[in-house]
Design a protein around this nucleic acid. Sequence first.
DNA 1: CATGAATGAGTTTTCATTCAT
DNA 2: CATGAATGAAAACTCATTCAT
Lengths: 215, 215, 215, 215
Amino acid sequence: MGIKERKERERETRRQQIMIAAKRVFTEKEFEKSTMEDIAKEAELSPGTLYLYFKSKDELYASLCLRVLRYINIKVGHVVSDAYETYEAKQAALMAAMHDVYDYDPLILNNMFHLQSSETLKALSPELLDEINDLSRQALRTVAGMFTDGIATGRIIDRNPIALADIFWALFSGVVLWEESKRMINVSRFNIQETFEVAFDLFQRGLRRSGPPAE
Amino acid sequence: MGIKERKERERETRRQQIMIAAKRVFTEKEFEKSTMEDIAKEAELSPGTLYLYFKSKDELYASLCLRVLRYINIKVGHVVSDAYETYEAKQAALMAAMHDVYDYDPLILNNMFHLQSSETLKALSPELLDEINDLSRQALRTVAGMFTDGIATGRIIDRNPIALADIFWALFSGVVLWEESKRMINVSRFNIQETFEVAFDLFQRGLRRSGPPAE
Amino acid sequence: MGIKERKERERETRRQQIMIAAKRVFTEKEFEKSTMEDIAKEAELSPGTLYLYFKSKDELYASLCLRVLRYINIKVGHVVSDAYETYEAKQAALMAAMHDVYDYDPLILNNMFHLQSSETLKALSPELLDEINDLSRQALRTVAGMFTDGIATGRIIDRNPIALADIFWALFSGVVLWEESKRMINVSRFNIQETFEVAFDLFQRGLRRSGPPAE
Amino acid sequence: MGIKERKERERETRRQQIMIAAKRVFTEKEFEKSTMEDIAKEAELSPGTLYLYFKSKDELYASLCLRVLRYINIKVGHVVSDAYETYEAKQAALMAAMHDVYDYDPLILNNMFHLQSSETLKALSPELLDEINDLSRQALRTVAGMFTDGIATGRIIDRNPIALADIFWALFSGVVLWEESKRMINVSRFNIQETFEVAFDLFQRGLRRSGPPAE
DNA sequence: CATGAATGAGTTTTCATTCAT
DNA sequence: CATGAATGAAAACTCATTCAT
């Protein structure tokens, strides 16, 4: 029993090691330009070994996305279950949680959109696909739940909570992607810290039922 | 002179024809899965011909992006130069302009993020790269200008106008990408019309100096 | 019209050129050990070019088999439609036809058995698969038809004509394969000419109606 | 001595266990598509262990062939040494023996032709190669011996006994392979029992001395 | 200008074999 | 002896790009 468990844990460690290497490579090169050999080299393993832990390049990739999705769900789940003095505080915590997610894996969001091309999705194993869908839905529902509460208690404007959650997610992804792009092309100063703050502040202000008493 | 001009116009027509074909292909397949042969077939030309008008696949691709960027600048430029009864109306016109852009080429925004990977950018000719940067900057500055005005006249909150423009752009791109993703994975109902409206409404509300008198 | 036809013929010539090169390689190395690069080199082409004419290694391979099957059908068809003095002469002509087939492509019969593993068949395009089945069935039916005639006119023993055709085909393939094997391992002297003759003579004798006086 | 012997017997048991597993795998998949891991799994051993008993995949494979060859020699040897009422009965017993061989390992005959490609043979150890050749020759000679007797006693036609043995073997292998192929492609009804009977009946009839009265 | 056949470097993936435990 | 994780060489296949016609 103990021995089987240990093996399983070692296996999991190796998977993590590969995923971290993959993350590093994808951070530099974008999915299509990153080769399995690059990742193997980064992980100090041989190409063949990668296939002992991931069925294909696509599946390795999807696993990276799952990793972030799981992290998102944990973080957002905490915000929902934790008690906060005010609804505003809870909302602020949600924003902070997303910032955590960004710190955890800044680039994967960029790449997640790659995942969602039908061509790529078709090649994934059904289990992986299901888990991705489940986690995505769960994350969205949790956030939507917070907005439902806010609407019910009259703290925020009365709009379709799912639409609000969609926009929350779109805003977050948009900011990450756009700031990342700005680092590449030279459009305006790259300062994600500030942009995040302003973006979320704006979003919260937009949600408020009646404007702030006085600024 | 006349003959040279005509030649030049014919050449431009051909370029457009290819770009429209490319747009159709990229809409279905994402950049890396689209082959030059796909595009040639769609344009009813031979692969070799494509290279008479575009130096490489990357350049063809970048030209498509340029096309949208130019369209954006025209549309946004109009909003800025046109007179509107109120600042709110002007702002609403800006949102409508972005909706136009989305109609013009829904997917290219998705793909534009592909362009901005350093690997891809490196391969572009400096002129193209410069033009992309110029147009991007110009678009951003124009939008930022509108916000500067709004701030100056006290119509909107006093925040860094560039940051506001960034967020505006990020929100727009985020909504497009996320709604597109939802069409692929099955997370929530795909309804870009509504999401756009709610998103821009929220953004505008967030910008308002003092909340609406009463709802 | 003429130009399209010429192109088509050139294409066909190229296909033949590749198939002949492939035949040479398969003759030396057996299917699994022969690489597409070997074939390309033999055909003095690049590996990529092979894929312009054949979808995959399996399809190139299957096309080789088709080639022999078509040849068999032509040869056997001639025997059936031609008039012969006696039934024995017709039967002898059938045997001779099979010898022709052997000369046309001695090794492919060996390889044809490789084709018929379910794993390989699964990967073929349905059209190719259908044609292989059709030609195989047709060849068998034609031979069976000759036996049906022989039985009807009382020239040969009354057995299921399809079974007889099966055995005829099995004997032919068996002789080819076994003689080929003997060339590799050193079991007995390799002399296909004689073995063919004795084999077919035996087969014909076995078929004759009037057997030994009493059974 | 006793302990060494026991060890040796245990070793032999293990070898057999692996070979039986290999046979099962090769029956389903053909040589090149069967992996050592497949075989290891079937034998409930680890891949590494296989190499403690067989130098390579080729040698494991060749050992399987040896196994059938030995079985053939035993069966055919019995027929030769046993007494039968008539020569016809002896011949019938030979046919029955081959049917036994087919039951013992239906597919390996199919695969034996794989073995006899020069590429594969080159990689085998000389001892193994020699044993294969010896057993093959022995089997052939034994069968040929029966025909020599038949010729000498005037029971069968006077042809080169080695050629007759070759044809006997070719007919047997041909029937097995062709019936196996028919199970894959859909040419005619798969019925090996009947085909075997008709084939051997035809062969025996063909061998009979007294042919038709006059030709 | 236009063509499209040919190229060949580059990618993913497989699997027989080894070797540290 | 047995293990099984790791190896890495080799294979099939793709596709942006070129160039003779």
